[in-house]
Amino acid sequence: MSLTLALVVAGLVAGGVFLVLQRELTRIVLGFALLGHGANLLLLLAGGRAGRAAFIEGDGPTGGEVDPLPQALALTSIVITFAATTLLLALAYRSWEQRGSDEVEDDLEDRRIARLRDETDADLEELTDVLADLEGDTGPGDGVADVHGELRP
């Protein structure tokens, strides 16, 4: 195994991760492109040392051919990564068209929840007020009966 190749993989992955963590969509897409390269090289690396291309020249293998399977896998993954990255790019483009900016937005509902609310279930509050009276927290007093009367004229 080649240390250089392993270092290239690590470098591509690190660069890709750094870009993916940014807020601009285009950089994220580019980051995935780098990550994809890293992953494909890694597959190849898993096949072992460099060698002769896997072509059968005569009647059979002569030895020294490089492991063909990781290449086939990498071929498939290149295509898939390409398709997905392009789709992401189209999405980024659409997003830019709509918003005039290519920064990822935060989720609005999440932000709303994150701003701590004080209001709570309105129904519950009403019931509690009524029942607390019944329990006597406010003593025998306020009109309760009509609230509970299910038969209103």
């Binding site: 295509v79 398709a83 392009t86 189209a90």
Partner: peptide, 13 residues
């Protein structure tokens, strides 16, 4: 399929 993809991508973008 691949030809179709490239055509669609280029025309879409």
């Amino acid at each position: 399929v691949v030809t179709g993809l490239v055509l669609l991508v280029v025309t879409a973008l």
